[in-house]
Every structure is written in structure tokens, then in C-alpha cells.
Design a protein around this nucleic acid. Structure first.
Lengths: 335, 335
DNA sequence: CTGTTAGCGCCTTCAA
DNA sequence: TTGAAGGCGCTAACAG
């Protein structure tokens, strides 16, 4: 281990001078600077980050809790987080929780042990263990995309899922659809609740009835889309339009609809959420709700850094705009 | 900041005793233990990880350099890395480099400053700056998937890309194909080289000639597939089979082939690499080379930890098996 | 402008 | 079994 002391000996100065030369070169004479830099180079010295951090008490790291790394939508959020973090001199500790509480607890506790300065949660659960709950109250934490259950005190960056649900429904109704199937993702979440409420509100306004049997699914996976379509097409009055709560589900649904010999959108219209990379290249391209995932990630970091620096927040809830992308998978109701 | 001193006062013992109680409870009496634990609880004390780490000189973190987070294949590798790291008590620092040298340098230098104990590189470049190159020689570093250019001293976990190229070519030749188009990803990489060599070797053995004009592309993106097909279909003698160097490229290619009114596989056979999540659900499902991405990530961590612990390595190059998945996108040559 | 000194919070001898 | 003391590597305050 080549440390500051070795360098100071090599340069014939004190350790303080070495430290100063590296942190604020203006405070030492050009001559000293040269000597020190020379020694630094010769010794191959790099300041020990751990040691500086103990002093400052700040790790300049944030931990990101993500339920599932392979979900492309999450990855775009994380990309935004990573970029914003880097720009601000922070590093990102990745916490793949697989939605499991023990893992969440473990990663969340990193903030309590000074291993990280703040926490971004992509899932909807309160990540701390019961034992840590009290301590957690003072922790800088932000949730993106989902909202942490029952917790009003942590800022959230989210989409207007209610409005998105409404927009999709209006879009489909404008094509004459009246019987909607829904293939949902994770049920126990605010997102689910908001989207569903948006869809229902429009249906009600239009005098349409929503049959609870038309709501299927339960996780954000391709396989859920396949199973969901199987369930929906078994119903006596099958839906003419299916709203999937993410594009993965829609991809599975599309595959299964075609497998059963039906056509999209001629027989059934299909919509998704997220606008993942492949969505425009499906056959037909998916009508979907585009979410500004990268921005959501970036914004989450900005808010988190404000919390970390104890700066006042303008608002504790930010709602980002969505865009309904009308593509080939939705069209006029069959007659 | 609630530190060990506060707890010691609260418990009426020395700081040493508190530390001991937490690290090796057996070394203190039951009575002391109880007192200390009580105080720990009351104070809401968590040992400062930074401080412990300065002492030990180990951060128990590894940094992962990834050129592009949104690539689903990389994500599966990272998932494996994350899992294995967690199981071994290590955390993962995420370094999204976008393939840019400055970023690589910056992240790589984390290992030199004790911010991380080791490094996993998913790209093919030597991530350290010229200035750091010497120091880097002693750094625990492993490359997965790609091989670091010109560097023989760092272990690598990779696929037998040569054999995979051969297997694909044999598969297509067995269907009667003779004119192959190739849409490549990143050209300057060992992967590219190996796959191409594999393909060429089989063609040569079969007495087929490879026309250099049939090699197009240059990045692992959907758009590359689209452009690649446009280029290939302009040729006077167009290919009857197109080998894409990842599934994203194949997805773009598939889309463009269909857009031009041709059918897969009746008019053109198409193959990919990686077997990403959506590949089986494309229309038609993609014939592709499945790579054990998760395992590759896990294995990389295992090897890296051996390096970190200065344990001897059995071998410095591990080649994992691939599986050729024959699905609907490849079929008999049209006649 | 530079060096001495005193910690940051923790852990680990060493001695009692 | 426990406590006192020193030190991990670095930095900041204070002298000089």
C-alpha cells in the first residue's frame, strides 16, 4: 500500500503538504508542487478514497433498489440515474432485490451504515426492516415510478398513470371499442391502482360497464401476456381490445393472439406501456404509452441529492409527462 | 452521527467492548452483551462501514464496466454478477461507460483508490488510462464475454465464438444455403473476429466463397439490422441467409425484411446471437445462439474474488458452452 | 507557505 | 473478561 506518508518522505515534505498539493494546488509554491507531483508519480500514489470518506463522513454513493434487472424499462431508469449520479460525482451501488424483503432490507441498511448517502427505490415497498424503520425516517430516499406504500414523507417521481389510463381508453373508444380486457402487472401497487382507475373513469363516463373477469394477469412478464390472452379469449364475450400494463406483457399477448389464429389489430387491438426498445419493431408495432424513463432516473437523482444536502424541496411529488404512441397494434373495432 | 463512543457511554463500557460485542459476541459475558445490545438498540447504532473499511483496507465492492446498460444481454450478465457478488458479501458499483475512454478511466481508477477491490470489464478495451497502466498491472480484473485487447494477463470468461460461428454455418448449410450475409456488431473486438473466423472456416471446408460485400453492420443495435438488410438486399446476388451478431440486430433485420415484402424464412433465413428475452416471441421466433449470460456473470465474480484474495487460478481463460436454438427464422433455402 | 497536531470511527493488540 | 492506547490513511485547524 503506497500511502501519503511514503510520498511525503519521497518529496521531503510533510503529509499535510502532500494532501494540500493534491486538493488545492494553489496553496503551495510552484516548487513544492513540482516536488510533490514528482513523488506522487514516482510512487504511483492515489489517495485512499475510503480514508478521505471517513473524514468527510460522506460516501458519495447512492444505492438503487431494483426489483428486476432484466426489465428493460427499469434499465432505462437506471441508465438515467447512473448518468446523473456520475455528473454529480456520485457512484451507484446496484441492489437487485428480486422483490424480496430480506434483500431490500440488506441493501437499504447500506444507507444506515454510511456505505451510501441515499437511496432510490424502484419498487413500491418500504425497503427497511421493521427494526430499522425509525432510523429510516431521517434517510434520504426517493421513489421513482412507483410510490412507497403508505409513506407520505418520501418524495416520488412518477408518471401520471391515471391520465395515461384515460388516454389509452379514449384512444380505443375512438376506434369504437367497448369491451376491454386488461392484463395487469404487479397488482399491489399504486401504478396498478391509478391506471385501472383512469380506465374505469373513462368507461364510466362513456356509459360502458367493466366486467371484473376482464382483468387478468399479475406480473410484468411476457408469459403473463400469453396466459392472460388465453384467459381472456376463453370468455364468452371476448374483448375487442386488450390493454397490457407493460410492453413485455403486450409482446406475450401479441404472440399468443397470433398463435390462436387471430389478427392484430383487425380482430383484437392491443396496447402496452413503457415503449421499450423493441416495441416499434414488433409486427405490428405496438401502440404504447411512452414514459420518459431516462428523465425519471435523472430527476430522481437530482431530488435525492437535494435531500442529501438538506436543501429544501420545492415539491415532494413530481409527475412527468407521458406520450401515447399510436402505432399499428390498435385499430378500428371489428364489426 | 451516533457512533461507538455514544453507545459505550450509554452501556457504561469501553468502546472496545462495544466493538467486540458486535463482532465476536462470544468474547464478552452474557451480562455485558445484554447491556451493550440494549444500548445499541436505544441509540439506533449501526457501525460506520467506511470506518471499518479504512482499517481493513478492503471495500468489499467490485466495479462493473458496461458499455451500454440498455443491452439486454449485458443486463443478464450483470444480474449474474450482482447475485454472485451479493452471495459473497460484495457490492456492485455500476459503471456505464457508453464505450467512452474517459469514463472507463474514471471508473477503473476506483480500484486504484480503494473504492473497489476489483473490476469486471464487459467491453473489449483496457479500461485504465495510460498514466494508470502500470499500477493497473496489479489490479484484480476479469473480462467477461469480450477479451481485453492485447492483454494476456487478465482472466477472461467467454463463449466459444469460433465454434458458435461454425455451428450456425453448419446449420444453415444443412438447409442448403450457400450465400450468407453477415450483419456484424462492434467490429474491433475478439468476438467479431472469432465468429467470423468460425463462419469462414466452415465455408471454406464446404468450398463456398465468402464475398466481402456480404459483411455489413458495425454496432449492436436494432437500427444496424435495418440498415444492414437494406445494404444486403441491394446487392446483385442477395444472400439467402443472414447471420446477425446479436438478437437486436436480428430484430431490426427481421422488421426490414418483412417491410420489403419478403418472408422469413421462406425467402431469407435469419439467425441471431444471445437469445434475449423476446427472441422466442418474435414472428417468426428467432433461431439464435443461446449464451449462458447469468453463469458468465457469476463465474466472473468467482474468478475475480480469487484474484482479490490472491488465490491461485486454475486457468486464466474459461470458455462456456453455447446452445444453438433452432427456431422458426431459419429454414430451407428457396429454390 | 509549510509543518505539527489532532482527530474521523473503528478495531486490535497489549496489559491488567 | 475488559479497558487503555495506538493506528488505519487522510485532512483541517492552528501555529510558526
Amino acid at each position: 500500500m503506497t500511502n501519503i506518508k511514503k510520498v511525503s518522505e519521497l518529496a521531503g515534505v510533510s503529509t499535510a503538504t502532500v494532501s494540500r498539493t493534491l486538493k488545492s494546488p494553489d496553496l503551495v509554491t510552484a516548487q513544492t508542487r513540482e516536488k510533490v507531483m514528482e513523488a506522487v508519480k514516482r510512487a504511483g500514489y492515489r489517495p485512499n478514497w475510503l480514508a478521505s470518506s471517513v473524514k468527510s463522513g460522506k460516501s458519495n454513493s447512492i444505492v438503487v433498489l431494483v426489483p428486476n434487472l432484466v426489465n428493460p424499462f427499469f434499465m432505462r431508469i437506471i441508465e438515467g440515474i447512473e448518468q446523473a449520479a456520475q455528473e454529480n460525482g456520485y457512484s451507484v451501488l446496484l441492489g437487485d432485490t428480486q422483490g424480496r424483503a430480506e434483500r431490500e432490507n440488506e441493501y437499504a441498511s447500506m444507507v444506515l451504515t454510511n456505505r451510501a448517502d441515499g437511496l432510490i427505490q424502484l419498487d413500491h415497498s418500504f425497503p427497511f426492516s421493521a427494526a430499522d424503520a425509525e432510523l429510516a425516517a431521517a434517510v434520504p430516499m426517493v421513489s421513482v415510478c412507483e410510490r412507497i406504500e403508505g409513506e407520505k414523507k418520501f418524495p416520488v417521481i412518477e408518471l401520471d398513470n391515471y391520465a395515461a389510463g384515460r388516454a389509452l381508453t379514449h384512444h380505443l373508444i375512438s376506434y369504437g371499442h367497448q369491451r376491454f380486457g386488461i392484463i395487469a402487472g404487479q397488482i399491489a401497487s399504486q401504478i396498478h391502482h391509478d391506471r385501472l382507475a383512469g380506465i374505469r373513469s373513462v368507461m364510466q363516463e362513456e356509459g360502458l360497464e367493466f366486467d371484473e373477469k376482464m382483468l387478468v394477469g399479475g406480473s410484468y412478464q411476457i408469459e403473463t401476456g400469453i396466459q392472460g390472452v388465453q384467459d381472456l379469449l376463453k370468455l364468452p364475450a371476448r374483448p375487442t381490445a386488450i390493454i397490457c400494463f407493460n410492453d413485455d406483457i403486450a409482446i406475450g399477448a401479441l404472440h399468443e393472439i397470433k398463435r390462436q389464429g387471430l389478427r392484430v389489430p383487425q380482430d383484437i387491438s392491443l396496447t402496452g406501456f413503457d415503449n421499450i426498445r423493441v416495441s416499434p419493431y414488433m409486427d405490428p408495432p405496438l401502440t404504447t404509452v411512452d414514459q420518459p424513463a431516462n428523465d425519471m432516473g435523472r430527476r430522481a437523482v437530482e431530488v435525492l441529492l437535494q435531500l442529501i444536502k438538506r436543501q429544501p424541496l420545492k415539491r415532494s411529488r413530481e409527475i412527468l409527462p407521458f406520450h401515447l404512441l399510436e402505432r399499428g397494434s390498435s385499430g378500428p373495432v371489428p364489426r
